[in-house]
């Protein structure tokens, strides 16, 4: 019994002792990494550290540059965006102008004016005074243009800035093409303005009527005029 007790105590003590020793051994193995460095190693370490610092400095500089470039790019992109907008506007404007000058087909609402020779010509009068002449057509066209017409066509022939209208006997020549009466003048533009300007007192319509021409005017919702064939 006594021997057993002694053994138990020895076991306990040895258990604690073994635990302590093993634990401290393991602990020092984990932590005892006191780095012993020779002079050379110190120098090397110092050198590498210096290099690292230099690299980091350089990195920072480059990063700064990248940042500034990014800013520039952003700026340029914004500018490009603005320019795009501008170009779009310009293109729009150019299209409009092309439509007006006749380089592009145009369509829209407008008015239609028919000029017709008088049906009844008193025998004692000169027939010439009862006919539509080129000056009548030109009068109408000029009035329409000054009223802001975008495009004008006579009997389907579009008038351009260099078109010419001639009176050749009973027909009218537009750019070399002959057209007989009645003459249908179509104009694209603001209907209200065009009509009002034509129907002024002592205006174009009055003049034409006074010169014995039958004038018929109507609104058209949609008319298409082709581009100039060049």
């Amino acid at each position: 019994m006594k021997l057993r007790g002694r053994h138990v105590i020895m076991s306990l003590v040895l258990f604690v002792f073994g635990f302590l020793v093993a634990y401290s051994y393991q602990y020092t193995k984990q932590h005892a990494q006191v780095v012993q460095m020779s002079e050379q190693e110190w120098e090397k370490d110092f050198f590498y550290r210096q290099q690292l610092i230099q690299l980091e400095e350089k990195n920072r500089e480059l990063q700064d540059r990248v940042d500034s470039y990014r800013k520039d790019i952003n700026h340029l992109e914004k500018e490009f965006g603005n320019e795009k907008e501008k170009i779009r506007e310009y293109v729009e404007q150019k299209k409009k102008l092309q439509m007006i000058t006749g380089e592009l087909p145009i369509q829209g609402s407008g008015v239609k004016i028919s000029l017709k020779d008088a049906d009844y010509i008193p025998s004692e009068e000169n027939a010439n005074q009862y006919m539509v002449h080129d000056r009548h057509v030109q009068l109408v066209i000029n009035e329409l243009y000054s009223a802001g017409a975008k495009a004008i066509a006579i009997n389907g022939e579009r008038i351009f800035k260099n078109s010419f209208i001639n009176c050749v006997g009973p027909v009218i020549t537009i750019d070399g093409n002959h057209y007989p009466a009645p003459f249908v003048i179509e104009a694209i533009g603001d209907i209200q303005t065009l009509r009002t300007s034509l129907e002024l007192t002592n205006g174009v319509v009055d003049i034409l009527v006074n010169e014995n021409i039958e004038v018929k005017m109507e609104n058209i919702d949609r008319v298409q005029m082709d581009a100039k064939i060049s």
Binding site: H7, V8, M10, S11, L12, L14, F15, V16, F17, G18, F19, L20, V21, A22, Y23, S24, Y25, Q26
Partner: peptide, 15 residues
């Protein structure tokens, strides 16, 4: 044997 066994147990536990 008991103390030796306990010593080994202690050491292994510590490790």
């Amino acid at each position: 044997w008991l103390p030796a066994i306990f010593l080994i147990i202690g050491i292994s536990l510590g490790l």
